[in-house]
Write a protein that binds this DNA or RNA. Sequence first.
DNA 1: GCAGTTTGTGTAAACGCTTACATTCCACGC
DNA 2: GCGTGGAATGTAAGCGTTTACACAAACTGC
Lengths: 359, 359
Amino acid sequence: MARTTPRGRTGAARAATVKDVADAAGVSIATVSRVVNGAPRVAEETKSKILKAVEALNYVPHTGARSLVTRRHDLIGVLLPDIHGEFFSEIVRGVDEAARRRGLHILVSNISGDANEDARVVAALRGRVGGLLIMAPDEGPDSLATRLPSDLPVVLMNTRGGGGRAALMIDNHAGALEAMAHLAAAGRRRAAHIAGPGRNIDASERLRGYRDGLAACFGGAAPMILQGDFCQTSGFEAGRAIAAMDPADRPDAVFAANDMMAVGCALALSEAGIRIPQDIALAGFDDIPLAGLVRPALTTVRLRMAEFGRRALARLVACMDDPDGACPEIEAMRPELVVRDSCGARSAPSGEEARPLAL
Amino acid sequence: MARTTPRGRTGAARAATVKDVADAAGVSIATVSRVVNGAPRVAEETKSKILKAVEALNYVPHTGARSLVTRRHDLIGVLLPDIHGEFFSEIVRGVDEAARRRGLHILVSNISGDANEDARVVAALRGRVGGLLIMAPDEGPDSLATRLPSDLPVVLMNTRGGGGRAALMIDNHAGALEAMAHLAAAGRRRAAHIAGPGRNIDASERLRGYRDGLAACFGGAAPMILQGDFCQTSGFEAGRAIAAMDPADRPDAVFAANDMMAVGCALALSEAGIRIPQDIALAGFDDIPLAGLVRPALTTVRLRMAEFGRRALARLVACMDDPDGACPEIEAMRPELVVRDSCGARSAPSGEEARPLAL
DNA sequence: GCAGTTTGTGTAAACGCTTACATTCCACGC
DNA sequence: GCGTGGAATGTAAGCGTTTACACAAACTGC
């Protein structure tokens, strides 16, 4: 097990303890503890004496000692995959905000997708955190989620399977469906899809949304799927493939499983002289900052990740407060369509769009 | 669930303790502790018996109890401002990676810039973390850094002042100087600067680099500074202002204090029919992902933020291990120039550039 | 064989905190 | 006067660890 290296000395001077405060205020440690924890039935006078001593000695309770006796932790573990950029910080911000409001702190760590290593990370967190927030969109059904310690409240974020755990999902299917409906409403007849990596739950749910959208809004047209991997290059290649098609077979709409691929696709199309949205309407997913900056501005589906983080934490706290409560429900957060210019169906510009930026 | 709990109580399963492991293995708790902590002089046979019991009981030491007696914490506080996106995740990833290698965990929190609120956050972290990593590029000299508890090892990241604290800086000045030298080497004569917000240390150091670059490489030409605020819109406005100038007075090079402003500026210039790099060479700072995607691809100065995070953590650990060691040195990390197309002085393409992407 | 060392293990005392229970004090009604 | 009850505070028992110290057994070298 984790062998601990001696670390983290807190400097020379011993920090003040309850005992020191009690002595300074001329009361017992129990009373100090009561004041520090806001317990009732302490005389005003005593309370202020103690608070003065706390201030003077710069006293801060030792959380280790506290959690030892209370048997609870005010730390939440947040495990996020190695996604880059925007999402990571957004989620962390949301979780942190919600945690802080409740007097909790968050312990952040990356998970790699390697089930063994991830299990080790989780193990290191037991005995330290009161609950776990885990996001692992690439997980197979048998990995991390099923190996979680049963005595630890966990909320899974956007993860496949879940094994009876509480989970908060992004409703990728609904978002994709909405994008497809939008393309259909813009008068398109034949929609292709640039798919993300298959083992990723976002990718596969968006693909499912595409298929269902085809059935629902495109009169059951045959699917036309180009495999991508969420990165821009793969979108570019998909775009080239589309450009190379016989114009008679060519789709008049493309729904990419994320914005990066949509941007790559847009580039390939415009290099081939295909106009967006006149010749081909294009929709993405995620609403990355770039989406509003490219020209034509990309119509996409927005995920509110900070909100997602906040809700996940709220869920987790609910589980922690009520350990026996049956809360392994799966809740979903619905993303929203952001209509810009790339589908040729622009509605009233939002505030963001009013800014004079483009590329 | 509670099957291995010795007390046999139904209800919430108590986590296994050293005592449980000791009983199961038929040894004393001291020996268990020794094995768990990798102490020497334990018979192989005993060790394996104990490890088996640890495994069977799914034992994890209670870190609170441990830190209570050892007087050390294996938690590091990481305080980051509300910067968005890329940087945040990069830094966290770097710090996490370096921390994990040392058996440490990181506690992440946002700081707002409001000195009182931030001080409260720091207070909540005392008695919980072994050290603090703080990044606050907007700090005034008298705020957070000076109010830090003196008994806590701290490494400041890219912060002004520092008040005798150890600090790890980004050498913005050197980076800016390098960008200026590059513009001069590309044959430019008259370089303008789009500045960032003045109270931000990155902005002011880059401005200083611009001025010194003017003196060193542009024969002491008069500065031409347009005030921006790091966001794209302000770069756009600066670009419009430049485009509106009498072509005789117009600069033939623009060094923007960050990439977002450079992109905004590029847009305004190209709207005005000014060509990049033929008419005006453009350089940015940060190397955001977008920088490689715009056309012409933006020459900029790259910050390796993950590396920055790793080094900051290493510094902090050094301070923690040697509390009396005088380590309040200020170390700087030098960014690197990334030459692309926007200065008209393209050198051999790097691997990244070989990708077929553009906008 | 015997002092001295080495090796493996156990005992028990903290660490700083919360909290059940005990105590004191005082006001009240009888 | 006494008993009663409530308010304010104190006493002390742990919470799960680590670790100094103690001890026993097994080796050394003579």
